[in-house]
Design a protein around this nucleic acid. Structure first.
Length: 678
DNA sequence: GATCCTCGAGTTCT
DNA sequence: CTCGAGGATC
């Protein structure tokens, strides 16, 4: 029960609001903080508390709701009036040519003017000005909502807080990039190191970390910079009818604008700019990862419009992935769940693409031969797709002496069992099966996965210990663990031990498909497991099926059927299953498929990028509940691709194949429409 | 027999 | 996300 607001409380609320407003004014507008942050935070928290306890006293104009109020914890989220979109990417001249061609075709023009600029590797930011004053700075976030980082942004000296040009619109928004110069980054790290504080790995992380500081005093002390690259709401002014005129105007009224921005003509102009910028990349005092082209004329931009979340009139032309040379110390072998041996390159640590790389997968022996990689070699390393490190090739020309070719071990490095290499197949496997510690560990990890038995809190660290101490040999042992046994393990106090036991207990009733998937039969993943479960209905029927009967299931051919049959005929496996059932694991019948036709029957959807409002798994579940298939790859059979923030190559593929693209809002509308009908 | 479409499996670093 | 390969289809 909340107490009724007394007149006294009402007065308190009003006083607090007035006080906070006054401090805000001094802090934000006059730039003269009048009280320490802690005191200010106390006032805000007190007000928030009162407003929570007495909702009827709440007021939309209260400073607790007002954009620009400092917040005590974390950052307030703010919605962007105009979404901050991502740009389509191009990686080579051909793709740039297609971009230029498409615009020329659509506008029926022979040659176009573009504004070309370096693409800084920093953080996109939106700055809102009202009556010439900076009232809000927000990060890009997911493009639709970002974080209010006004207090920190205000400390960046090159960002104007007050503009004195008289002929400005009452309200407009400036967008640009916040970044840290390389020299500033180096100095900062030196300073941090001298104080025994943690250093940053690259300027981008440093800028990001600095901007998200909760204490603006720290931000103020660090060398952040800003370049503007766009403005919204300035074009009501006479003469502002193009990207170049906006940039010109921004410069006049006091915003920092990258001096390398150039107006260029036609495809050749774009490619020249890209080449010239790449050539000076190393001399610049900031990191760039490519260049951006924008169609200059606003009327032309308007005519081109948007595809899903990207403007059709702009393109990011990325530089090739950064490469580095390092030495390959040795090649180690990892053993996977199925016994597959994966050679992994152990490298001298090398800084490439913003992180320090020490490991890179070499996939299999064929790959090692193809790249002619040998231990001791100098190799070229890059971050493929900007994430996963990859050995591009060995620099055989730098070999100082003849190095022996590397070969797969004949026996498993973990359990010593024989290694088997089937003729014509790329992969080699350990034949140890569950005897092999590595396979056992991986099998347990697989068993506990969220999409399998969903045992929360059973990660690789705990599994390693359980296997090492021989507390668990196969999945059924999990169900016999007690909290008392677990408490002996590292990083496992009473609370987590109890939680784990409870999580294991909760997993006792999986649907048959999950159970089957959890067993880890070769070539039987989530999809095939569910198909098998639905077709056979019971575990007994499935275990009794011969390969021919198994192949009656859609998508199950001779190979998979063989693996399934073989698995159930292995005594060791049957024993594990028996023990699981004895331990109280009871599989549940699959949800029957709806017999009425579903609205989205026979429709295939593909999700890419991250969704802001829905979880990916929730989006998938809701689509499937309506009868749709959600697949991982785009083809011409795909009915729609749903693109979230930072969509991957699937979006590109969808565009190539002419598959319709939806954004998240459209997806939600679609779901709502059909769910309401059901 | 060739081609297309999916699924399965494995991977790095913060 | 990407690669390899199993399965379906023409």
């Amino acid at each position: 029960m909340t107490k009724l607001p007394t007149a006294e409380i009402q007065q308190q609320v009003l006083d607090l609001r007035a006080q906070i407003e006054a401090h805000n004014h001094r802090y934000f507008v006059l730039d003269e903080p009048s009280i320490p942050d802690v005191e200010y935070d106390k006032l805000v928290r007190r007000l928030e508390q009162l407003e929570r306890d007495h909702p009827e006293l709440d007021d939309p104009d209260s400073p607790t709701h007002r954009v620009g109020a400092r917040v005590a914890e974390g950052f307030e989220t703010v919605e962007h009036e105009t979404p901050m979109l991502s740009l389509a990417n191009a990686f080579d001249a051909e793709e740039v040519g297609q971009f230029d061609q498409r615009i020329r075709d659509q506008l029926d023009l022979a040659e176009l003017s573009y504004l070309a600029e370096p693409k800084l590797d920093g953080l996109a930011i939106s700055l809102k000005y009202v009556d010439g004053r900076l009232i809000q700075a927000a990060t890009r976030g997911d493009g639709y909502t970002g974080e209010n980082v006004s207090a920190n942004v205000r400390t960046i000296r090159s960002i104007p807080l007050k503009l004195n040009a008289d002929q400005l619109p009452d309200q407009f928004e400036v967008r640009g990039e916040i970044f840290m110069s390389r020299s500033g980054f180096a100095e900062l790290n030196q300073r941090l190191q001298a104080n025994d504080e943690k250093t940053f790995v690259n300027p981008r992380n440093a800028a990001s970390g600095t901007l998200r500081q909760l204490d603006p005093a720290i931000t103020a002390d660090r060398p952040l910079r800003f370049y503007a690259y766009a403005a919204l709401g300035l074009d009501s002014d006479a003469g502002i009818d193009s990207q170049s005129s906006v940039m010109q105007r921004l410069r006049e009224i006091g915003f920092p604008v990258n001096p390398l921005i150039r107006k260029v003509s036609g495809l050749q102009g774009l490619l020249d700019f890209h080449r010239d910028t790449l050539a000076q990349r190393d001399e610049l005092d900031y990191d760039i990862d490519g260049v951006v082209y924008k169609l200059d004329d606003f009327d032309q931009q308007l005519e081109m419009g948007f595809v899903s979340r990207s403007p059709r009139w702009a393109l990011a032309h990325k530089f090739p992935a950064e490469e580095a040379i390092t030495r390959l110390r040795e090649i180690e072998v990892q053993v996977g769940r199925t016994g597959k041996l994966t050679p992994v390159a152990r490298l001298e640590p090398v800084f490439v693409g913003g992180v320090t790389v020490t490991n890179a997968t070499l996939h299999n022996l064929d790959e090692i031969r193809r790249k002619d990689v040998r231990p001791g070699d100098y190799v070229i390393v890059r971050r493929a797709g900007d994430v996963i490190p990859e050995v591009v090739r060995a620099m055989t020309e730098k070999r100082e002496q003849e190095l022996p070719e590397w070969n797969l071990p004949t026996h498993c490095p973990v359990c010593g069992s024989k290694v088997e290499q089937v003729e014509g197949q790329a992969d080699a496997r350990c034949t140890g099966g569950l005897v092999c510690g590595a396979q056992r560990r991986r099998a347990l990890e697989h068993f506990a996965m969220r999409t399998a038995m969903d045992i929360d809190g059973l990660g690789s660290k705990s599994i390693d210990q359980l296997v090492e101490q021989e507390l668990v040999r196969d999945p059924s042992d999990l169900y016999r663990l007690s909290a008392e046994t677990l408490v002996g393990l590292e990083r496992m106090a009473e609370k987590s031990a109890a939680n784990l036991v409870e999580a294991i207990d909760r997993s006792r009733k999986p649907e048959l498909g999950r159970f089957l998937f959890a067993l880890g039969i070769r070539e039987v993943g989530e999809v095939s497991a569910q198909l098998l479960a639905r077709y056979f209905g019971t575990l007994d029927a499935l275990m009794a099926a011969d390969p021919e009967q198994l192949q009656a299931v859609d998508e199950i051919g001779p190979i998979v059927a063989g693996h399934v049959h073989e698995f159930f005929n292995e005594t060791a496996n049957r024993k594990v299953i028996d023990r699981l059932l004895e331990a109280g694991v009871e599989w549940q019948a699959e949800q029957p498929l709806a017999d009425q036709p579903q609205p989205l029957d026979d429709k295939t959807f593909v999700l890419t990028g991250s969704l802001a409002q829905l979880k990916r798994s929730a989006a998938k579940a809701r689509l499937e509940a309506l009868g749709a298939r959600v697949s991982g790859s785009v083809s011409k059979k795909t009915d729609a691709v749903i693109a979230g923030t930072d969509p991957g190559s699937k979006l590109t593929k969808a565009e190539e194949l002419g598959v319709p693209v939806m954004n998240e809002d459209e997806l939600i509308a679609l779901l709502k429409e059909h769910e309401a009908a059901a």
